[in-house]
Nucleic acid binder design. Structure first.
Length: 370
DNA sequence: AACAAGGGTTTAG
DNA sequence: TCATCTAAACCCTTGTT
């Protein structure tokens, strides 16, 4: 019996330095310059962080997450550098057009973020990597032809390896990793290259002498479980061996949040007005998705950048702006009711535990689910 | 033991 | 004043069934 029949072929598509590339399409003048996409917090002239940068800027040391001021310092000698505010709405338009195009004609589709998607092309490729390669080239060509954007594409037997293949060949790459080559592909890579293994976990693994994915793949599973727990331990062993049965399929969102940076740090609840737009925005999003929430959290980031949350669960789901606002206010008041002297830099609201098939407040219309 | 709720950490883009 | 914004997956503790 062949073990190929149930084997999938999964394509991972990752749009290169997406926000910056979108800007380059809008304005060809900046194509050969360092381009930095910024999220300005509004605190002061250049306060905020870098969202992403094109490869010219990256090569010079500008990475996502660094302060805008730091990026400006790095690019001081490059008078042609371009700093642009993030225009998420525009990037979403572009993304939607691309995703809609990709969605058609595959067995399964999963958009994982604004610039990444998985396609299950098992049947369309008839399970052959030669066909899969043609499909990957075609996808790249269609995206380039319609939007002028390059992307990186990975193809393998599951999402994990396809994603790693796409990561490995970016930008503007295409890499197929056939099942028989997976062991080789992974073996000598640092463990930190595995999705889900960030700096903290990598450091912990390194301290155990586990540096390469091959080391992790061969490590005693009992030991891993005792160190990393019953869930993470076995999971680490699995991914290190290239195993991932997670299907390509859409998922419903489970939470929705909005957060802002306050103009000035606050030691008391004097930012009520700032919460109003957040509540309004969340209510609007809930209506769009026809969801009600049962759980609501206040998110607070202190002046030391520590994250604190307070949550409350409702008896019945709601989607009302007023409810979001009033519950959030209550939770924030609780922060300052504590004896601790807390100073907040950023504040936000999150709702979760959604219920669909749920009757919006005040609609007065009976739903027909039961 | 299983589950819900509240709070925190890590990862990712 | 260097330090955005959104989302998911875990982990832990506590309390209840």
């Amino acid at each position: 019996m062949s073990d190929r029949l149930d084997e999938r072929i999964v394509m991972a598509i990752d749009l290169d330095y997406f926000y910056a590339q979108c800007e380059q399409v809008r304005n060809k003048e900046i194509r050969d310059k360092p381009v930095v996409i910024c999220v300005f917090s509004g605190r002061s002239e250049d306060s905020g962080a870098v969202s992403t940068a094109n490869y010219i800027a990256r090569k010079l040391g500008v990475k996502s997450g660094i302060p805008i001021v730091t990026a400006k310092r790095i690019l001081k000698g490059h008078a042609d550098s371009v700093f642009l505010p993030m225009d998420k709405q525009y990037y979403e338009l572009v993304s939607t057009r691309i995703m809609d195009m990709l969605r058609s004609g595959c067995d399964g589709f999963e958009q994982v973020s604004i610039d990444e998607a998985y396609l299950d092309i098992t049947s369309k490729s008839a399970g052959r990597y030669s066909s899969a390669e043609s499909m990957a080239r075609e996808a790249k060509q269609r995206i380039l032809g319609s939007e002028g954007l390059t992307c990186s594409v990975g193809v393998s037997k599951n999402k994990l390896i396809s994603k790693m293949a796409a990561d490995q060949c970016k930008p503007d790459g295409l890499l197929l990793v056939e099942p028989r080559n997976i062991e080789n592909f992974l073996g000598t890579m640092p463990v930190g290259k595995l999705p889900g293994i960030g700096p903290k976990l990598e450091e912990k693994l390194n301290s155990l002498g586990i540096k390469k994915i091959g080391d992790l793949a061969a490590f005693d599973e009992e030991k891993l479980s005792s160190i990393f727990g019953r869930n993470l331990g076995p999971h680490l062993k699995e991914v290190a061996n290239g195993i991932d049965s997670d299907p390509v399929s859409g998922r419903e969102a489970t939470q929705l949040s909005r957060i802002i940076t306050l103009k000035h740090n606050s030691s008391s609840f004097d930012f009520k007005d700032d919460l109003r737009p957040l509540a309004r925005d969340i209510a609007e999003r809930l209506r769009e998705s026809k969801n009600g929430f049962k759980s609501i959290s206040a998110i607070a980031i202190t002046s030391e950048l520590k994250v604190k949350t307070k949550a409350h669960t409702l008896e019945e789901p709601s989607d009302a702006e007023e409810r979001i606002f009033s519950e959030a206010c209550k939770l924030f008041e609780a922060f300052f009711a504590e004896p601790l002297r807390i100073e907040l830099r950023r504040v936000g609201i999150r709702v979760s535990t959604f219920e669909k098939k749920w009757e919006p407040e005040g609609s007065g219309v009976l739903t027909d689910y039961f």
